[in-house]
Amino acid sequence: GSPLAQQIKNIHSFIHQAKAAGRMDEVRTLQENLHQLMHEYFQQ
């Protein structure tokens, strides 16, 4: 897949890990990143 698709997959797993660790501030930051990446992805 594209590097962007790979990045989106990575962030999904980072979010999963951050949630499991209870780091909600990190989850929020990652979700904002994910949102931006998704936006770029669909602009392609």
Rank of each mutant, 00 (worst) to 15 (best):
18 A>E: 03
6 Q>V: 09
10 N>G: 04
12 H>E: 12
31 Q>Y: 13
12 H>V: 14
38 M>I: 13
27 V>S: 02
35 H>W: 10
19 K>W: 05
25 D>A: 08
5 A>R: 08
14 F>G: 13
28 R>D: 04
9 K>Y: 03
18 A>D: 00
29 T>A: 12
19 K>E: 09
21 A>W: 04
4 L>Y: 02
35 H>A: 12
41 Y>L: 09
25 D>Y: 02
42 F>K: 06
13 S>V: 10
26 E>A: 05
14 F>W: 11
35 H>D: 08
18 A>K: 02
5 A>H: 11
44 Q>S: 12
17 Q>E: 13
20 A>M: 08
22 G>T: 02
26 E>W: 08
5 A>K: 07
27 V>K: 01
18 A>C: 11
30 L>P: 00
37 L>T: 02
11 I>E: 01
44 Q>L: 11
6 Q>T: 07
21 A>M: 07
14 F>Y: 11
40 E>P: 01
39 H>V: 11
1 G>K: 13
5 A>I: 14
26 E>T: 06
24 M>V: 07
25 D>K: 07
26 E>R: 06
27 V>F: 04
20 A>S: 08
23 R>F: 05
24 M>L: 11
42 F>R: 07
12 H>K: 14
40 E>I: 09
35 H>N: 08
34 L>T: 00
6 Q>D: 12
21 A>I: 05
20 A>K: 12
36 Q>G: 05
12 H>T: 09
29 T>C: 15
23 R>D: 08
19 K>C: 11
8 I>G: 00
13 S>G: 12
36 Q>C: 06
41 Y>D: 02
26 E>F: 05
38 M>W: 09
16 H>L: 11
40 E>M: 08
9 K>L: 07
8 I>P: 00
42 F>T: 06
43 Q>F: 07
35 H>Y: 07
34 L>Q: 00
43 Q>D: 10
19 K>H: 07
3 P>V: 12
6 Q>A: 07
17 Q>M: 12
32 E>M: 08
41 Y>P: 01
24 M>P: 05
7 Q>N: 04
30 L>W: 06
11 I>P: 00
11 I>T: 05
8 I>T: 00
4 L>V: 07
5 A>D: 09
38 M>Y: 13
19 K>T: 07
16 H>S: 14
41 Y>W: 13
25 D>C: 15
44 Q>V: 10
9 K>W: 03
20 A>Y: 01
22 G>Q: 04
10 N>Y: 05
34 L>I: 04
2 S>C: 15
42 F>I: 09
17 Q>Y: 04
43 Q>P: 08
27 V>Q: 02
1 G>F: 02
26 E>D: 08
34 L>F: 03
16 H>N: 14
4 L>C: 08
5 A>Q: 12
21 A>G: 06
2 S>K: 09
25 D>F: 03
4 L>I: 12
43 Q>G: 12
8 I>A: 01
28 R>L: 10
23 R>K: 10
26 E>N: 03
9 K>R: 09
36 Q>F: 07
25 D>P: 02
4 L>N: 03
42 F>A: 08
22 G>Y: 01
25 D>S: 07
38 M>P: 00
33 N>T: 15
